[in-house]
Design a protein around this nucleic acid. Structure first.
Lengths: 252, 252
DNA sequence: GCTAAAGGTTGACGCATCGTCAATGTCAAG
DNA sequence: CTTGACATTGACGATGCGTCAACCTTTAGC
């Protein structure tokens, strides 16, 4: 019992081109080749293909996969080597991301960057036209895809956090406390954690916002009334900015 | 005043091959070409080259760099686009790292992985021969490079943390407290934080150890007397393992 | 003026993994 | 016999140079 190249491609979720490539490089040969040159694959070949695709999804290169399947390398060894490689790549990316971020903030004071990203956090769709006009459709689409990937519950939680944070900022500002006080700094810490929730931005991910991003964001609250309004107007925004700057200087 | 291709290569820290490539793709043309075909560069060209190399270090592709230098794209726009690209790449890497880690732990119970990495944390050089024999020179070299990159102060801090942690574990184990108790869990949390300090391992970096890694590590303490000894012997190691397992189940 | 050492030039292959035509043969159904 | 659907073997493309190879020029020393 065997199948044509298309059958196998569909069964395994890959393409016939890929199968021919694997044949070319000797990674997976058809179990039988017709007199007409047609490739036919049996169940063993399908099994082998599935192992190949599994390893490939983990990011292994075809030669490495070939070694593993040939029994020349143990699974764990190959994966371990690969893991370290991935980790070094990630570190490299982290460094590059940091460098790009700081270059951008140096270049533009960070305002544009933050404006774009911060549209995520507030009423997301409200500024659709403006975002598209100012940053291009692509920028809006990217921001949008994150927001829409959230469940309704997650969206509600996100907005709830933002609201309560904004409210606490406002009352702190009205109370006239010192931006350097523990109270204000605790709010800044919450602001920081809140920002970590946005993935795919210089303010998101496990590491949290960068120093430049965080301070620049505070500036934005003052510069743009729409953001500032969330924190109690001009005065509130200035208070938030100062507290954030202190927080950044001390902790980032 | 102009310089030969080698002069410029040395001044800018790149190679003549690269310069000829940039000429080929039209990214940087020499200011003058001799009748013999030799390329000569003036100061303007050098400046342009330096801008190119700057952008390239940030990871931009040559076409993108060309756009920026031609004034067709604003610096910030190009970098912003690039930043998002980097971030998506990083997320992809994160997912792959997670997948590879869990595959390894499934494959080998995670013991080998952890054994390798944990040599970092204890007396690092003590097991050099064993590590090399068991994991190859490469593995040892990688572990070693991290450890040696630390300042003496950092090394001392690291070991101090490990010692105090081990001591606290030992006394907690002797006191016979419950692995689920707050005290034990606080120790597990410290253990977790401590592991975050090793970069380039599944237990290092901002995200901290994975669930599988963390629980598997506990198992290792029991399985390998050399590690267990740090935590008060057999009984202590079992206590640590249990507390870590509870911590992992609850928080990871 | 000769010679060897440096340094320059233009190709062209290699790398990783297929996607994507292009030109063409084969098979099953009507 | 015709018409699709499916198959085959090339071969280019993409990323950014490293690395020969084969072959001139310039420079410095004798």
């Amino acid at each position: 019992m065997d199948w044509s190249i298309q059958d196998i491609a569909r069964l395994s979720g890959t393409t016939s081109r890929t199968l021919r490539h694997y044949d070319d490089v000797g990674l997976l040969e058809p179990s039988r080749v017709g007199a007409n040159g047609y490739r036919y694959y049996d169940e063993d070949a399908l099994t082998r293909l599935q192992r190949i695709l599994l390893l490939r999804e983990l990011g292994l290169g075809l030669p490495a996969i070939a070694d593993v399947l040939a029994g020349q390398t143990r699974h764990a060894d190959a994966l371990l080597t690969h893991l370290h490689w991935l980790q070094r790549e990630k570190e490299r990316l982290d460094r590059q991301i940091g460098a790009v971020e700081s270059t951008i903030t140096k270049l533009e004071g960070g305002e544009q960057l933050m404006a774009e990203d911060m549209f995520d956090g507030f009423d997301h769709t409200q500024y659709k036209e403006e975002v598209e006009e100012r940053w291009g459709r692509d920028a809006y689409a990217k921001s949008d895809s994150w927001w829409r990937s959230l469940t309704p519950q997650q969206k509600a939680e996100w907005q709830e956090k933002q609201k309560s944070l904004a409210a606490d900022w406002s009352s702190a500002a009205e109370a006239g406390i010192d931006p350097e006080s523990d109270e204000a700094q605790a709010l800044a810490a919450r602001q920081f954690e809140w920002l970590r929730g946005i993935p795919g931005t210089p303010g998101g991910g496990a590491a949290g916002p960068t120093k430049e991003y965080f301070t620049g964001l505070g500036e934005l609250y003052v510069a743009d009334a729409r953001f500032g309004a969330n924190y109690g107007g001009q005065h509130g925004a200035e208070f938030v900015r100062d507290a954030m700057a202190v927080y950044a200087a001390r902790n980032l």
